[in-house]
Nucleic acid binder design. Sequence first.
DNA 1: GATTAGGCTTCG
Length: 805
Amino acid sequence: MPLQQLRESDGPIEAQLPSHMQRIKFEKLQLSALCSNQYVVGTILVKFTPHESGTGEKIFKMVLEESTAQQSVSNLATINTFIFGKLVIDCEHALKQGDTVVLTKFQVSTSPSASKDGRHALQLELSEETGTTVYAYAKSVKESAASSIVHSPIIQRPKIGMQDYTYVPLNQIKDGVTVNVYGVVKFFKPPYRSKGTDFCSTVTIVDASNGRLNCVLFNGNSDLLPKIYKVGDVVRFHRIKIQEFNKELQAVNAAGFSALTFDGTPGASLKPRTSSKSYQFTTTDQLTVEELRRWANVNLSIHKPTVKLSEVKPAEYFDLTCQLIAKAVVDHSSVLLKVWDGTKCPHTLWQIPVDMNTLEGDPADIHRLCKLSADVLVYDNHVGAANSLKVGTYVTIHNIHTKFATLNTEKPSRSLDTAPGMEFHLHGGTSYGRGITVLPEDCSDVQQLRQSLESALLADQDSLGDLTLLEILNTSSRSSAPERATATHVERCHQESATVLTAHQHIKSTSIQEVMDQTPPQKYRIRAKMVNYQPQALHQSVKLYCPKCHSLQEIPCDDHIDNLLQDAYSPDSMAVAPDSQSPDALWYQTATWEAEGQRHRRITVHFVKSDEAQRIPERSTILVEGVTLNELYRLSKRFGSIIPITSRTKCLTLNELSIPFLIQDRKWHYGCRHCSHPQPMDALQSLSQTGPWESSVIAKILGIQLLRYVFVMRFTLDDGSGSLDALLWDEAERFFGISATDVVVDDALQEKLTRIMDTLCPPRTSKDDCPWLECCIKSYYVNEGSEQKTHYQIFDTVVAGAEDF
DNA sequence: GATTAGGCTTCG
């Protein structure tokens, strides 16, 4: 019960109260404080007769005098105290004038009568919702209602002690009464700082009686105002006072005001949002809330569909539920909020140029999410709220205004510095409920938002992945900085994993058994050991991939290339006599000689003319005919670009495409046999003076579809709950930190690859001694004949410390 | 030591 007895004979007050409770003097009371760990001690100076309010509950007013204070004339020495509801019945007889009382968990609000009664400017309010306990402090043991009550926690409040709350339908509201109401929010302004001392929130509610009520609510503590997140929420207000304003009835919060707010979705959770320490919520209340939800959803069209960034149009106002990525003070009257909601705005986004040093937020996140984030400029009275937001917070920004940036040539604006695009403003003022609401993680809108954010990260993993790669590269190049190296090291030790994730670190791991129980497509984080991998011969793990026809081809082996080259220069296959000199062309110079010891073989080299080529052979381009594989290797050490050709037709053309069409910087480039349409060498003339002699440019001119080198491996992963084969497909030197193109021609890189694989999956070692791997994997279906099979692929995962192998 | 706001779009 909330009335308990303390006895002087049991020792001083502080010794009889829980140790965390602190006494607060009347003069130290503050509006904004939530007094849950504080108590006041006072002597009952005046005790008024309890009366019943319009809500049907009893109100009991007392005047307390600070008992231990020096007798003072200060008006801070006496304070009006109001007790509401069931507690009145307990207190009205048990407490006598002159008694000392100890009050806990009271609500502090402004006293409307202070100017008249000369008492404290604040008043104490004790109701069921504040979770108050009143302690009567008796000088001696005496018979009283309270003396029979032993200490018991208030949460064990017996059912018989329930309060009778009555709720007035909104069409029956009368002027001058204090009432309790239920309603559906039709309009609201989230709490904002008024020009006076309090926070203010205005709320318009409606109900099935077709009544409608505008409520103006003040409190020095914004937490005590209703926690409304959107139109359609259901509210329950206790103790609002009805008054007339502009010939209409309006409500203001009365003493003891408390609010519960519920999600307006039928069937949603019935857990209210409130700062009340305790509240009564019966099955009747549940029915009322559910009934209001249903009524509103059928009869009201107030549930605006939520607008995502992907749906915004210029020149509209909307509420955006999003996560704060970064913020920056722009000037004295505006703050930039960088936010995202997981969707991509189809319009060019306005980027507010700010100094990176003034931008608060994780640079990696800012960079990674730049294509998904919107810059919202927040003005004037909202600056304070924006400044107090923590990065990472989920918020609803109410009434964002979108418009296209207009280029004003007379008055240069910020937007001139960057490409114009869609602007997002939160203008000053509170019209239309403009403001920012912080959403807690457990609310349903945040749950949905988080899903959207997560799937955005996973869905566009290719494009985002490239950015992540850039970050990894940047990070490793900066890792000479000791603090970063330390941080990376600590992270690795902590993870105890031979691989690390480049994103999605906040996702929980899923067991392999669970992964295999679910139907594709899905994305997961797993923690497992590599018990096997294929191909064991690492040189077979690099393949050639055609991005056009998606075919995967083996790299032609040396013997095969050598045979093809021999076929190309054998006299039988030559349409043009080998000794017929190819004339010099305008764009190249030709040299021909007989291969040593091989009379029938003539080697021809066409040197492409350019100023640079004459100075630096390493940067020159040559077309070669009649060479062996060995000679190709040797030439590739000397010349920058080598194009093996044949002159079996009247013009110079490429060989069969199993022979590399270009060897550049010792890298062998192949073309797709299905997707290429080789052109005669004359096409290269246009490049001869201008360049650039880049593989992609040469390929395009010669009609060649370039094949890419990729690592393709199959890892068998096991976490104890099960095992699966996951494909590793790496064409961007991500996973190993090694380029698949380079590894083919670089012995040192091949040795490094072997060391990495021996670490990930140590040979001749029991599973216990294998290291753990953190991996992101995705599942997908593959048609195999008439069957659909589930496959898995690794993504956003890299070998930890690959640069150190 | 009483006031704040009392829905109703924008300077940027």
